[in-house]
Design a binder for these strands. Structure first.
Lengths: 357, 357
DNA sequence: CTGTTAGCGCGTTCAC
DNA sequence: GTGAACGCGCTAACAG
């Protein structure tokens, strides 16, 4: 870039000198139009433009005012991964809607869990943080809390002293399972999102089940279990497969699951992406959905109704979660009210009566 | 939040005093571990923790160092809209990959075109900007340029002195049209993205065609025209419909287009979302794709191959665009090399031989 | 390894 | 409507 060296970074002072007024007056010209005559203001602004003044330095202003005009967003997953997750994107849409309304910027902070360099969080110049789905043992979580800024948590009901917005994951998952039970299914399989942040992938045993650090996964598993056990199904015999939330991996996992004997007639998937993968695998195996296999997803992202058969799924208000999180963060209210939003089962074409054996 | 009033914002100085060392030493304890003995460092850090010190104030640090550790991103569309655009999201994924690698944050700056309050751009504490698809006459564009920071433009080949990354939109669009021509299509219709930022929606007349401020729309239209005119088709007779890049609107527009006499046998859509809308409308009208109607999209987002029939489309390296833009911005190289990435036509199931009348 | 000295560029009283 | 003074909290030299 040429600018850097050209001018020795011209500042408020310089243009004050050029116009022959004091620094304050120039500052006022930019920030308080009502504090000086329009003529003078125009004169100053013009001089500034001529001299190529980039405007009051935002960093200096921030230091002075203590306000950044930005809200921070920390995801529990890596950024490229989050931007691959349509549920996260929908949430982001909600947040961005509020940002736009209040003219705040959105600082998305990457957080390499493994890396000691959690500097990004310490460096973030924001007025507060929204944390999205951080695992309980997350290093990022303590870093955010250390900043002593306002925080709102999303999908993390368990944090003390941190207002949160989310859904009743347990209840929502239960709805999905109950729906399938009403169709007389007996052979279930569960495609779960990650239980811990250790990149493990595979069947989940009892011990791992106990040590689940991802709240929503844990709660949804409980919801499935609630329903299944109520129907006298031995939950310990239900295969739970931990997957990456990714179509291709979901396809592989579904393949494994569908080759088990007895073959599941119903798949409970913790996201629509996982459900979609299962659907494609079923089609590839020439299994008819829902005649041979029922699938219920979670989230109700657009894909759920764009594909055929349309996905039966648990709808959750993703965008609204974002809106509320942002509003909660911005509201000065000391009342740390946590919001629990509603969900509903949307029955479409991927679920039906269990096949008779 | 409780923190604000509780402690009178404790600072470096305070903890220096408490431990009985100088401010610098405390600063070093945080930023340069190698500059003091481990014991002292631990002692300082512990004292800091006890006193509830949130760490060196990022704003003050920024002012001092002149570095923000963040890169700004400005979209040509409203934020909620951008987060609805899967092509933009894929681009974002690319940017975020680089951010994560270099531990930089990503500041997404909303920009209400109509609003005089373009403050967000002036206030953004970033080391540089990536601008994505800003219209030529955009107020935001001049604001960004005014900041005199490094800038990289995406999909905006025409800016002077601003390195850019993009594709050859004209050539890419031409491929789509040529493909359909090879199937002997004669009756075309074009579903275009916006030509200007005035929220107009409807058929595009010659005059509007002349005053197109959105580069990529303009270039793609030219590409379509190049191919069509080469095939002796009167381009002025080809209906061009300007749509919002949104599935529902695309469906309506497609309905209008497909009710024209003679009915188009081929639709050139400037995005996969538009193509998808057309596809659904065709199905709803009981038109067979591709037997009765061929459709070619643009972008090759996942949806293109997730739906049936799969979409024939022009693939562009969306993620790579993001990666390159970010890398270009971060590279100190004074060489303002603009990158033009390759595209290719992906022939799938939504295009075929023109129906015989 | 430690401390001293200087600002980074600005916003805000408060007098004039 | 204007200007002088003060300090936001920190880091970069450099000297010890």
């Amino acid at each position: 870039m040429e600018h850097d060296k050209a001018r020795k970074s011209i500042k408020l002072q310089d243009i004050a000198q050029a116009v022959g007024v004091s620094r304050t007056t120039v500052s006022n010209a930019f920030n308080r139009p009502d504090q000086l005559s329009p003529e003078l203001r125009d004169k100053i602004l013009e001089a500034a433009k001529e001299m190529g003044y980039p405007g009051p330095n935002p960093m200096a202003r921030m230091l002075r005012t203590g306000q950044t005009g930005a809200i921070g967003l920390v995801f529990g997953e890596s950024l490229p991964y989050a931007f691959n997750d349509l549920a996260a994107i929908a949430f982001l849409r909600g947040v961005s809607r509020v940002c736009e309304r209040v003219k705040a910027s959105l600082l998305i902070v990457p957080t390499l869990e493994s890396d000691a360099a959690q500097k990004t969080i310490e460096q973030a110049t924001v007025d507060g943080f929204i944390i999205y789905n951080l695992p309980d043992d997350s290093e990022a979580l303590v870093r955010v809390l250390d900043r002593q800024l306002p925080v709102v948590a999303v999908d993390q009901p368990s944090l003390k002293n941190v207002p949160s917005v989310g859904i009743d994951d347990r209840q929502a998952a239960r709805k999905a399972a109950t729906h399938l039970l009403s169709f007389h299914h007996k052979q279930f399989a569960i495609m779960a999102m990650e239980l811990r942040s250790d990149l493990y992938v595979g069947l989940v045993d009892a011990q791992r089940l106990e040590h689940c650090t991802h709240q929503i996964t844990k709660l949804r598993l409980r919801g499935y279990r609630d329903a299944l056990e109520e129907a006298r199904i031995d939950f310990s015999q239900v295969p739970i497969y931990e997957c990456r939330n990714d179509e291709n991996h979901a396809r592989e996992v579904a393949m494994t699951l569908l080759q088990r004997q007895p073959r599941p007639t119903a798949i409970l998937a913790m996201s629509d992406i996982l459900a979609f993968g299962a659907l494609r695998t079923a089609q590839q195996m020439s299994l008819k959905v829902p005649e041979d296999l029922s699938i219920v997803g979670f989230d109700d992202i657009p894909l759920a109704w764009q594909i055929r058969p349309r996905l039966t799924t648990v709808q959750q208000p993703l965008v609204e979660k974002g809106v509320l999180a942002a509003e909660l963060l911005l509201s000065k209210s000391v009342t740390k009210t946590s919001k629990v939003l509603g969900t509903r089962l949307v029955v479409r074409e991927s679920s039906g009566v269990a096949p008779t054996v």
